[in-house]
Design a protein around this nucleic acid. Sequence first.
DNA 1: CGAATGATATACT
DNA 2: GTATATCATTCGA
Length: 197
Amino acid sequence: MSFNKLSASFYRRDDVVEVARDLLGKVLCSHIGGHLTKAIITETEAYAGMGDRASHAYAGRRTARTEPMYLEGGIAYVYLCYGIHHLCNVVTGERDDPQAVLLRAGEPLAGLDEMRSRRGKASAGNKLLAGPGSLSQALGIRTRLSGVSLLGDRLWVEDQGFSVADHEFVIGPRIGVDYAGDDAARPYRFLLTRFAH
DNA sequence: CGAATGATATACT
DNA sequence: GTATATCATTCGA
């Protein structure tokens, strides 16, 4: 149904930072519980694998939770944070190179009613997909989807031709990674200027 | 500004 | 096996 679904080669590049930048303006799509929802990706963060203290895979840490990150690029890594929020990542790079891009925010494109329904009370205004927990909740993404292929028909990313020029986004340090020491300062966060908040 | 909320990792016995 | 601290956040007071 989607002619423009991103293919494996998009995800399997060496440089996760490049993928994080390129995901801006792409469209995150889910077909879950019989509902199709789509959102333009407006904020991403790169997690650069074993050498990145902010990453769950730092120093090669490998557990049942993080196992998807060690698989070949092009699958989802979803985990529960603060006991409440399901955070959605796109795994990149080759097998055994655990890099991933956290999807932090989006702009609604399709399935608005279902998004609002899933978000409940807090779905008002422009906060529908603002923040990684909210984005996942609106698209119905749960930890159950961790490890699923992004080339399948439940969760994927499309290129609908929204181009993002260099002056249309800003780069900054990642959010909520103070525990990562010097790595917390890495310029790995990408945010479309228009949706900065 | 602080509570919510539970899986997960790690350090024990 | 059991205990405990931590967490890539969000919402409402």
